[in-house]
Amino acid sequence: MTSPTLAAARYLIPDTLVMFRRCARRTVRSTDTLVISLTMPILVMLLFTYVFGGAIEVGGPYLNYVVPGIMLLCTGFGASITATSVCTDMTKGSVDRFRTLPMYRQALAAGHVTEGVTRTMAAIAIAVTVAVALGYRPTSGPLAWLAATALICLFVIAITAIAVALGMAASNPEAAGGLTYAITFIPYVSSAFVPTSTMPTWLRGIADHQPATPVVDTIRSLLDNTATSRTLPAIAWCTLLAAIGFTCAAISFRRLSHH
């Protein structure tokens, strides 16, 4: 005999797709937020490339160095939108309405994660396209691009899951956006924009042992066709963050949905 949990799980994928379309429509309708999330990483890339890049020695074109960092920056901006959207649902009565419907309860959180990952990957694709137009010329082949895309996608999934958990924990949408500032700030204290070897010893220790540095180093080495020893730490960090994010989101959603 099928348990109630397994019976409900059959509706996870179709219900998640419904929630994904709902979240996507909300994002498209919020034109100003969407434009800011898509253009801010590009503006930061232009700032670092043409204002700061000439004074930063990285052993090659600075644009090639900074593009992987911009990918992580897109993730941070996307996380802020996701956290705010989730908190809006949590505080504006949407959960109470969905609770009365015959749907898989976790589909709401899964829909937010799916929409956030899709939106962020689109922002990364746009940023990379602009970088190519500016002269970005990675030397890797299709397989390396595929591996780099898989890694950045794993990182985006992990950070989006964290953003969903933060959105559920926040008391209001403004607080949810504030809680994700740390995510946006993390790439700056890493090898995303400058080599960690140029940092003070105490700061370099922090930069070398946080998630962004192994991820950005691995992506950079894949796209530049160079060797790296940071691949396993990068995957481990992404997996750990994803596990924490999904677990915290599930616990928070279960607690809130029973209130």
Results as ranks from 00 to 15, higher is better:
residue 155 F to S: 05
residue 137 R to H: 14
residue 90 M to K: 13
residue 119 R to Y: 07
residue 115 E to T: 13
residue 85 S to G: 13
residue 109 A to Q: 04
residue 120 T to A: 07
residue 106 Q to K: 09
residue 157 I to M: 11
residue 141 G to M: 09
residue 133 A to K: 02
residue 114 T to V: 14
residue 143 L to D: 10
residue 136 Y to A: 08
residue 108 L to K: 02
residue 154 L to I: 00
residue 132 V to W: 07
residue 152 I to H: 03
residue 148 A to V: 02
residue 123 A to Y: 02
residue 140 S to F: 07
residue 137 R to L: 10
residue 142 P to H: 07
residue 87 C to Y: 04
residue 143 L to R: 11
residue 113 V to K: 03
residue 91 T to E: 06
residue 105 R to E: 07
residue 129 T to N: 06
residue 146 L to C: 13
residue 137 R to V: 12
residue 100 T to W: 01
residue 112 H to A: 14
residue 135 G to N: 06
residue 87 C to V: 08
residue 152 I to K: 01
residue 141 G to R: 05
residue 139 T to D: 11
residue 90 M to I: 04
residue 125 A to F: 11
residue 113 V to G: 04
residue 152 I to Q: 07
residue 157 I to Q: 02
residue 91 T to D: 00
residue 155 F to Y: 14
residue 120 T to F: 07
residue 106 Q to P: 03
residue 119 R to A: 12
residue 87 C to D: 01
residue 116 G to Q: 00
residue 90 M to V: 11
residue 151 L to E: 00
residue 136 Y to K: 08
residue 142 P to A: 09
residue 97 R to I: 13
residue 89 D to L: 15
residue 130 V to G: 11
residue 121 M to G: 03
residue 102 P to H: 04
residue 139 T to M: 12
residue 103 M to Q: 06
residue 119 R to S: 11
residue 155 F to N: 01
residue 103 M to N: 03
residue 86 V to S: 05
residue 91 T to Q: 10
residue 86 V to L: 05
residue 114 T to Q: 00
residue 101 L to Q: 14
residue 99 R to P: 02
residue 124 I to P: 04
